[in-house]
Design a protein around this nucleic acid. Structure first.
Length: 774
DNA sequence: GAGTTTGAAACT
DNA sequence: CAGTTTCAAACTC
């Protein structure tokens, strides 16, 4: 921490320059000559306070390469390249400055892009820091290698022991990185990468230097998404002297590692005056990172560069100060945030989102995934199983921001959730970290998750914050049903089949479950995972939300709740024969969605919407449906429908359009059951709905149903007017088709019914998987 | 709470 | 793919 180290560093630097290795490296690098000189300068100028501790992060360790390989290889990065020697060089201070400015611009561009994607930069400070960042590159290295914190011995390069930063880690492995300002991280990283590329091995023994440097740089290079990588490339291509090197680096870069990216913390400061501040920053970083980091995966590097520019250093310092802390916190989480932010800001590609979500979800929910694949990359961010998210939310009071548009809702239930706020992120990250087990077993986490699974999307809103899981349960737990949590009662399936609601929801069984011989517990993670894989192999969508909601889109909100029925569809469709889709036996009904073409139900009277409309519905008369509210009525209808069914062709639409029928029916189901929809969301928009909904509720269906109820009464008529015919969906599928109804169909239908909610279609993409149909 | 009904999931 | 069996939730009493 003390300045004394500076001298050491500088001396060491000079040594290295002299060292044969250094020379060798220089010779290797094509560009070398020019930069080498400046480098030395920069270092000299640099005042190293005691950042070292910061750098001690595991990354730094010489292990790097091995680490690098391990980490990145899977990603596909070719490590061999380790361009390190050839490529990297130091820029003159001037160049660095110029570069920095460029980089800054680039970074800003990136930010813009990101923001465009939905990523918002939260901290203004970040930019400031970025500006200076470039310069900082060199220092970090020096710090890493040379400097130890005062009390610290700089172990030979690579010892992990070195790193003060060492992350507490492992616990965090899966989850646990807390991040705040995550969004900006990617950009910063990119910028830094450039810088890194420019850097020369100055300070430490070349051995360590390159090894450590390159890997680190690579780490930094890792991007969350391919898109980022490309963006980064763009930066790299700058006309900088080091451009070549950058390119090389780029080539080396892994395409897109999701979560692996490491961040470097860069602090700009003048060599002269900033040192103390830098130290402070470093220390902060250290502390911050230390808490959050995970073992191997992360290494935080604080880079301190000296600038000729003195301007703004102070500002920078202060700004960076803050920034750094955040950055420290941010790691993989950043990815998540981005995603979230992206979603929030824009309705970005739904597919990607869904995918990500799914991944995350799986993590938490099923521990199994964590172990194997998810590894840090995926998991790290946040394993958000949909279920898990929901659970988490409730659990920690995390808020999930709804997309402005409300797309979330539209998205397939599971995927839709997103977390927006930094706080949220933190919470999430933490939660998972805590361990799934805790969540699951404990109770809280798991149950909610399940509930959330479908409804999860709905859940998005406020509710999460509000309710602790317990609260949810309490709320949800109504005698008859556990709104908040589903608890299985499996006896023979060992809770390893889709029969088990918990398993199907991707959550562990918890105490409240009455299951026997349950294997769906953290203890049996492996078994659970295996089983899950098997099931997924049979049916990739087995764990996908059963109800897909297309439109959450804002427009609908205005329209009304009616939309929801139309927009949402059961992925496979039901096969009801006796329940007339008026009981929870019917998954469509249970999910609060209308039956669709994909349904093979007989005598469909689904209050949320009959399949096609053409279906047996015809016979049913409105009056009956109106009655439907009463159980007796519904049953009657069923009987009639059955009778009719024998006679009626499902396709042939009788007088009444399904919609009409549906309306009156809508209220019924709930009333009949006597389980009024819980809190019911007035607004249709997914966001609104969800928000209103209690997160804790296990049954998404109800929530949905509620929506429907509210909406249908008023709006339905309108809709009917416009689109009385259910026509919208063509019965493309054979009656049997179990497959998920294509979103398109759904959409089509929905709009027609709704009369103009075409927007819904947009949301559709989120469920690509669901749309198997040609 | 026990028994029945129901339809999805799993199996053949 | 169709038919049958198994299963657990939903429902009824």
């Amino acid at each position: 921490m003390d300045t004394p180290e500076r001298n050491q560093i500088t001396s060491t630097l000079s040594k290295f320059e002299d060292s044969p290795v250094f020379n060798y490296i220089n010779s290797l690098s094509p560009i070398k000559p020019v930069k080498s000189v400046p480098i030395s300068q920069t270092f000299n100028s640099l005042s190293f306070s005691s950042p070292p501790s910061v750098f001690t992060s595991p990354h730094v360790s010489c292990l790097k390469e091995s680490r690098f390989l391990r980490r990145h290889n899977p990603l596909g990065t070719s490590k061999p390249k380790v361009p390190s020697e050839d490529v990297i060089k130091v820029h003159s201070s001037e160049e660095t400055l110029a570069d920095s400015t460029r980089a800054h611009h680039n970074s800003s561009k990136l930010e813009e892009e990101n923001t465009g994607k939905g990523i918002s930069v939260r901290d203004a400070s970040i930019e400031l820091s970025r500006e200076h960042i470039k310069f900082s590159d060199e220092l970090p290295q020096a710090l890493k290698y040379n400097c130890g914190s005062p009390g610290f011995d700089p172990p030979p390069c690579g010892d992990e022991a070195n790193s003060l930063l060492e992350l507490p880690g492992e616990a965090a492995t899966d989850v646990g990185y807390v991040q705040e300002g995550c969004k900006t991280d990617s950009v910063e990283v990119e910028v830094r990468l450039q810088e890194v590329c420019q850097m020369e091995p100055k300070s430490e023994g070349p051995d360590c230097y390159w090894d450590s440097l390159i890997p680190d740089a690579l780490d930094m290079l890792i991007f969350n998404s391919p898109g980022d990588a490309e963006a980064f490339k763009g930066l790299m291509h700058k006309p900088l002297a080091s451009s070549i090197r950058l390119n090389e680096f780029m080539s080396m870069l892994p395409h897109s590692t999701i979560n692996n990216g490491r961040k470097m913390h860069i602090v700009d400061s003048d060599a002269s005056g900033s040192a103390p501040e830098i130290e402070d920053h470093c220390s902060e970083l250290m502390t911050a990172t230390g808490t959050n980091q995970t073992q191997d995966n992360f290494a935080n590097v604080a880079l301190v560069t000296s600038n000729s520019n003195e301007k703004a250093n102070d500002q920078l310092v202060s700004a960076t100060h803050r920034t750094i802390r955040r950055r420290c916190l941010d790691f993989e989480m950043a990815n998540v945030q981005r995603k979230n932010s992206d979603e929030n800001s824009n309705t970005g590609s739904s597919t990607s989102e869904s995918d990500e979500r799914n991944v995350a979800n799986e993590k938490q929910l099923l521990p199994a995934k964590r172990n194997g694949d998810l590894q840090r990359g995926i998991l790290q961010g946040i394993g958000l199983h949909l279920n898990a998210l929901a659970a988490l939310k409730e659990y920690k009071g995390i808020q999930i921001e709804k997309l402005s548009s409300g797309r979330q809702l539209s998205l397939p239930s599971s995927t839709s959730l997103q977390i927006s706020t930094s706080q949220e992120h933190q919470n999430l990250s933490l939660v998972p970290v805590s361990s799934e087990r805790e969540l699951d077993p404990s109770d809280n986490g798991v149950q909610p998750a399940e509930d959330c699974s479908q409804p999860s999307a709905y859940m998005a809103g406020e509710d999460f914050n509000q309710n602790s899981p317990k609260k949810k349960r309490r709320k949800s737990e109504t005698p008859g049903e556990t709104e908040g949590c589903k608890r299985c009662n499996c006896k023979k399936s060992k809770c390893l089949k889709l029969y088990c609601e918990c398993f199907a929801a991707g959550v562990y069984c918890i105490e409240p479950c009455s299951c026997q011989d349950c294997f769906n517990k953290p203890i049996h993670e492996d078994t659970v995972l295996q089983t899950r894989k098997q099931i997924e192999s049979r049916n990739p969508l087995a764990f996908a939300p059963k109800v897909i909601r297309n439109s959450d889109s804002v427009p609908e909100i205005g329209d009304d709740p009616n939309k929801t029925p139309a927009s949402a569809r059961h992925k496979r469709g039901c096969n009801c024969k006796k329940s007339s889709c008026l009981k929870k036996y019917c998954e469509c009904y249970q999910g609060g969605v209308g039956c669709s073409i994909s349904c093979r139900c007989e005598g469909c009277k689904n209050a949320f919407g009959r399949k096609d409309g053409s279906a047996s519905v015809g016979i049913e008369t409105d009056p009956e449906e109106t009655e439907a509210t009463d159980k007796g009525v519904t049953e009657k209808a069923l009987q009639k429908t059955e009778i009719q069914n024998t006679e009626d062709h499902p396709d042939s639409a009788t007088v009444a359009t399904p919609l009409r029928l549906s309306r009156p029916l809508l209220p019924l189901p709930f009333s009949s059951k006597g389980k009024p929809p819980r809190s019911f969301v007035t607004t249709i928009s997914g966001s609104a709905l969800f928000a209103s909904q209690k997160l804790g509720k296990p049954n998404p269906l109800w929530s949905q149903a509620k929506h429907f109820q509210t909406v249908p009464d008023e709006e339905i008529p309108d809709i009917l007017q416009g689109d009385s015919s259910p026509i919208t969906c063509i019965k493309t599928s054979s009656p049997n088709g179990k497959r998920i109804s294509s979103p398109n169909c759904d959409l089509g239908s929905s709009p027609s019914r709704r009369g103009g909610r075409r927007l819904i279609l947009q949301s559709i993409p989120s469920f690509p998987s669901l749309t198997p149909h040609p």
